[in-house]
Simulated scan of single mutants.
Amino acid sequence: MSRIGVLGGGAWGTALAAVMASDAEVLLWAREPEVAGAINAAHENTLFLPGIALPGAVLATTALAELATCDVWLVVTPAQHLRAVLAAADLSERPQLVLCAKGIEAGSHKLMTEVAADLIGTPVAVLSGPTFAHEVAAGKPTAATLACTDTAAGAALVRRLVRPALRLYQSVDVIGAEIGGAVKNVLAIACGVFEGAGLGLNARAALIARGFAEMTRFGLARGARAETLAGLSGLGDLVLTCSSANSRNFTLGMGLGRGEGAAALLTGRTVAEGAATAPVLVEAARSIGVDMPICAAVAALLDGAPLAQTIVDLLSRPLRTE
Rank of each mutant, 00 (worst) to 15 (best):
N202V: 02
G234Y: 01
G13P: 07
C100D: 05
G257V: 11
D303M: 00
L127A: 13
V239I: 07
L146F: 09
F218I: 02
L64Q: 06
S92M: 10
A125L: 14
G51P: 03
S247V: 04
L319M: 13
I104V: 15
G56H: 01
G51H: 05
V290T: 14
M1A: 08
G198S: 05
G236F: 05
V124R: 11
V183M: 13
F132P: 05
A21C: 06
E25T: 06
G255D: 10
T228K: 02
R225S: 06
A38N: 10
E25C: 03
A137C: 11
A296N: 03
L82S: 01
A300K: 00
Q96L: 10
P55T: 06
A17E: 12
A299C: 09
A17R: 00
L238E: 03
C148V: 13
A106L: 08
D291N: 07
I52E: 05
G219S: 14
E105W: 14
R3Q: 07
A285C: 08
V239A: 04
P123Y: 14
T277G: 09
A38E: 12
S108T: 12
L54Y: 02
V124W: 09
G236V: 08
E32N: 04
A299F: 08
H43N: 06
L302T: 08
A84S: 03
R317G: 04
E25F: 08
V239C: 03
A88Y: 01
S247G: 02
L27Y: 09
L266T: 09
L7H: 00
E32H: 09
L59V: 11
G223P: 13
C191F: 11
A11W: 07
A143F: 06
G129T: 08
R222N: 08
A116W: 07
